[in-house]
């Protein structure tokens, strides 16, 4: 709780910088317009008023973005193609699908790596190397190739999300499943525990903190994957499409509102995982 005041200060500072930036960046346009209208130099108050209410500003002011978000979420029908909720829903469904697939695959691979020495030695170095590679670059290719063999819609985007959320889960789960120490494993042996029991009663529970940490990273990565996956198909639907359409037509307010929506979505999804983490770990007596 003692962090509330400092955090609020930093957030307030960000908003101040944003407003000042909006005035500074939009000033040239406002002055040019005034000069063209023959009004001469604008006074300071006029300048501020103009820069914060332009139609296509270089940097829209926070209240303009907030107004746009309000208009496109609350005042529009959810099924309308102009509703941000509709676009967020499309992006979120791809994100969640990719996240679930990626997490499942990641956990399965991690179990394989922990229990099979050959797999550990041959696959693990590649998993680590693959994290240094800008995987997102292949997103357009995955979309086009999957389209070519007749898979369209949600799945191609989910595949990209899966690919991105899969690596953090593997690395985290391998660490987590290996976190019980020798002593605990020996204790299970003295209790004559089977391999199954050892896994479900010792290894899996003790990997939970690692799992949740990597789930958070994976979810954030998954959302990025879904947004980037929406770019190459052209501006059809989804938050990424809103970004692309906005950049085509110079609709800066639209870009910023999509961006803020994406940020809110990320915060909600990661927040849900954080909440689950707290509940689960509390039930297990680990937090």
């Amino acid at each position: 709780m003692r962090n509330v005041l400092p955090v609020l200060t930093v957030v307030a500072a960000i908003f101040v910088i944003w407003y000042v930036g909006a005035v500074a960046l939009n000033a040239t346009w406002a002055q040019d317009n005034a000069a063209r209208a023959g009004g001469g130099e604008l006074s300071f108050t006029e300048l501020v008023a103009d820069t914060l209410s332009q139609d296509k500003p270089k940097l829209p002011a926070p209240h303009q973005v907030a107004l746009e978000i309000w208009e496109t979420t609350v005042e529009k029908n959810i099924t309308s193609r102009r509703s941000l909720i509709y676009h967020s829903w499309i992006t979120m469904s791809a994100t969640l699908m990719g996240f679930v697939l990626g997490t499942g695959l990641g956990i399965a691979l991690a179990i394989g790596i922990v229990y099979n020495r050959t797999m550990d030695m041959s696959v693990m170095p590649w998993v680590i190397t693959s994290q240094t590679i800008p995987i997102l670059a292949i997103a357009p290719m995955i979309i086009v190739v999957l389209n070519a063999i007749g898979i369209t819609g949600l799945l191609p985007k989910a595949v990209i999300s899966m690919y991105l959320s899969f690596f953090p889960v593997v690395v985290g789960m391998v660490k987590g499943l290996r976190s019980p120490d020798r002593m605990q494993l020996d204790q299970m042996k003295t209790w004559h525990a089977t391999g199954n029991q050892e896994f479900w009663k010792l290894r899996f529970p003790s990997s939970m903190p690692y799992l949740f940490t990597s789930l958070k990273v994976g979810m954030a990565a998954s959302l990025v994957g879904a947004i980037v996956g929406e770019l190459p198909t052209g501006a059809v639907a989804g938050l990424g499409a809103r970004l692309l359409a906005g950049s085509y037509y110079g609709q800066t307010v639209q870009i910023w509102s999509a961006l803020i929506m994406a940020a809110v979505l990320a915060a909600c999804l990661v927040g849900i995982i954080g909440l689950t983490q707290r509940l689960v770990l509390k039930r297990m007596g680990m937090a």
């Binding site: 200060t9 970004l243 950049s247």
Partner: peptide
């Protein structure tokens, strides 16, 4: 004081899809 404010905000922003800033 700033330190305590910057850490949570920074952690939050690091989880956002900042790549969306690209068109801007």
């Amino acid at each position: 004081f700033l330190q305590r404010g910057v850490l949570p905000v920074g952690n939050f922003v690091a989880a956002l899809p900042i790549i969306g800033m690209a068109p801007i």
